[in-house]
């Protein structure tokens, strides 16, 4: 496939209500294989909304989002869910791990939903990912038995479970201390380019954004020129 992994074509997202709120206003962009894209912008500018749209968690009010050239406009929810499961991986500001499950079970969850590996393969792959992220000793711990940085690393391992082509991270270090931030961001950085994988990170931290290969700045739901620091 030679085209962009994700392409947004003039997407707009308007929240309905007595007073309509425009979150995203006519954005065009393309994310190519192997890119590390940082989305920055002030609070409430629409950067997270843009990520939700690019990650098919939300649907644009108008415009279209293409994933590997495939239009998602009007796509049934189950199909969008399958596309997310196969192609996209998510890391959120809060780890959002399932509290009653161990780290290993959390990482295996997307694999079990996709059902493309045998149970033994799933466990081995989940263990590989946790080992790679330095969590081998914590594989059988539940989230409440781990530190914030460890939980976020488990969330990264879960995002990688189905070997997605794109990782979308929404303020992945927003809730971590400086040491953990460096560690987690460092890990995210290493994921870029593996098998053509792209990473899209939403961050308000200009220093972290500076480490990305491309930076998109969102102001009032539109792409704007990157401000000079």
């Amino acid at each position: 496939m030679s085209g962009p992994l994700i392409e947004a074509r003039n997407i707009t997202r308007v929240l309905p209500g007595e007073v309509e709120t425009t979150l995203i206003n006519g954005i065009d962009l393309a994310i190519n294989a192997g890119e590390f894209v940082a989305i920055t912008g002030p609070s409430g500018s629409g950067k997270s909304s843009l990520m939700y749209l690019l990650g098919l968690l939300d649907s644009p009010t108008s415009g279209d989002i293409l994933v590997e050239g495939r239009s998602t406009a009007g796509m049934p929810e189950d199909e969008r869910a399958k596309l997310r499961l196969e192609t996209l991986g998510f890391v959120f500001q809060f780890h959002f791990l399932l509290a009653e499950f161990s780290a290993l079970d959390n990482v295996m969850l997307p694999m079990r939903a996709l059902e493309k590996r045998t149970p033994a393969e799933m466990e081995a792959h989940a263990m590989d990912l946790l080992t790679r992220l330095g969590l081998k000793e914590h594989a059988h711990k539940r989230p409440d038995q781990m530190s914030g940085g460890q939980r976020q690393r488990v969330a990264i391992a879960r995002a990688l479970a189905n070997d997605p082509k794109v990782i979308l991270a929404d303020e992945p270090t927003g809730n971590l201390d400086t040491a953990s931030t460096d560690q987690v961001f460092g890990i995210i950085r290493t994921l870029v380019g593996e098998g053509g994988r792209s990473v899209i990170v939403v961050t308000h931290d200009p220093h972290l954004a500076a480490r990305a290969s491309r930076r998109l700045h969102v102001v009032d739901g539109k792409l704007a020129p990157i401000p000079t620091e």
């Binding site: 869910a81 997310r84 959002f96 939903a113 879960r158």
Partner: peptide, 16 residues
């Protein structure tokens, strides 16, 4: 509710 949202965001179908 939060877990449900997470599972759905990961790609679990509504039927599941």
């Amino acid at each position: 509710t939060r877990d449900i949202a997470i599972m759905k965001s990961l790609g679990l179908r509504a039927a599941v």
